[in-house]
Amino acid sequence: MDGYKPPDCVRIRVTARRDAALYLGLAAAWGTAFVATDAALDVVPPVSLAAVRFDVAALALFAVAALLGHSLRPRGRGDWAPILLGGVCNIGLHHALLFAGQRTVPPAVAATLLGLVPVLTPAAARVARADDRLAPRGVAGVLVGFAGVALIAHPDPSNLAASVGVGLVLASAAVWTVGAVLVDEDDAALGGLALQAWTLLVGALALDAAALLLPGQSFDAAAVPLPTVGWVLYLALVPGALGFLVYFRLLDRLGPVEMGLIEYVIPPFAALFGWLLLGETIETATVGGFVAVLAGFCLLKGDVLRRRLRAWADAVLA
């Protein structure tokens, strides 16, 4: 049996199932990140929490990249442009706003609001390119998505803190979208892992500076209880460093459309872990808003989704 190779159809099925397992594992890990953040915010200010998380995550990714023998030296604008823009927008500003919003927004609601990102991203990309306009169905998808967000947010004048928190989470989604549209890695010489390590480092340094400059963001590390230290390390190493490693492996294999869909797999995990660990409950409006945002995305990307789903089904059933 030496040298035996299984048929192509068997290898394809095994690979598809392994990717599906990694996909669900990543969604679960990123779902728990909302719960871990909620727990850690009881002690650590939001910007400082984001800074510590990405300080540790960046160091972990650099260590992995070095152990694997990847080149770590950026070369010119093709590397530095996505590193700087992605670090400031997608890591720094996005997580500062998200963590600040999560002080008053439950984990499942925050995860569901970020489901607007896959709706906003193609719409923003088309706005940025004047020669590429949204079709009527795409416009309808964006409107349905925003209707879902309005249903989730349902501003309450009697609870201003919650309304401000929802606004901060939505602002974090908008910042992420700007970064996703403007960051261009086509001319990058670095590999994905090293590029992401540098991006996390730039974001971490921006957050470190913000934590030092902004009032109310300092904290006494020696006074942080052990459970909170555990939550912070978990955030940095599991959803952070390990999550990004899995994400880039899947992104290379599955492409941006399937990976964009993960935003709709994360909220159920965030809701489940929020209920198990924090006793959070899910409101009917949140569920309805999630369905509306998902429907908006399907309207916007329906043709691509159908092609991808057929290809995935053919690979699994072959």
Rank of each mutant, 00 (worst) to 15 (best):
D187M: 10
W80A: 03
V144Y: 11
P227Q: 02
P256C: 10
G78T: 12
L143G: 00
A50C: 07
F273N: 02
D303W: 09
V229F: 11
A96P: 08
D186H: 11
E263A: 08
V142H: 02
V139W: 14
L250A: 00
V246F: 03
L242C: 13
G87F: 06
D19F: 05
R75A: 11
P118Y: 08
P45C: 00
L160E: 08
L120G: 08
A222V: 14
V105C: 06
E185T: 15
V64I: 12
Y4C: 03
D184Q: 06
N159R: 15
G165T: 12
G115H: 07
L85G: 11
V287I: 15
G240F: 04
V44N: 06
A295S: 08
R249M: 00
P268N: 04
C9Y: 11
A174D: 06
V56W: 10
G216E: 09
F248A: 05
F248C: 09
G179L: 05
L193E: 14
A210W: 06
V35P: 01
D19A: 10
L300H: 13
A128Q: 07
A40T: 05
A57L: 00
R75D: 01
L97K: 00
L233F: 12
L41S: 03
D8K: 12
A140N: 02
G141C: 07
A110S: 15
D184K: 02
A204R: 09
A174N: 08
A311H: 13
A162S: 12
V232K: 03
P118W: 08
R133S: 10
G76V: 06
A153V: 15
A65S: 09
I12R: 14
T32E: 00
A285C: 01
L84I: 09
L59N: 05
H70A: 12
Q102C: 04
L300Q: 14
G3F: 02
G288Y: 10
R53F: 09
L84Y: 09
V109Y: 02
F34W: 09
W275T: 05
L93R: 09
P7I: 01
A58F: 07
L278W: 03
G296N: 02
L242I: 08
E280T: 13
D42F: 11
G25V: 07
A211R: 11
F146A: 04
A130E: 01
A174H: 04
N159C: 04
A135P: 00
A36F: 10
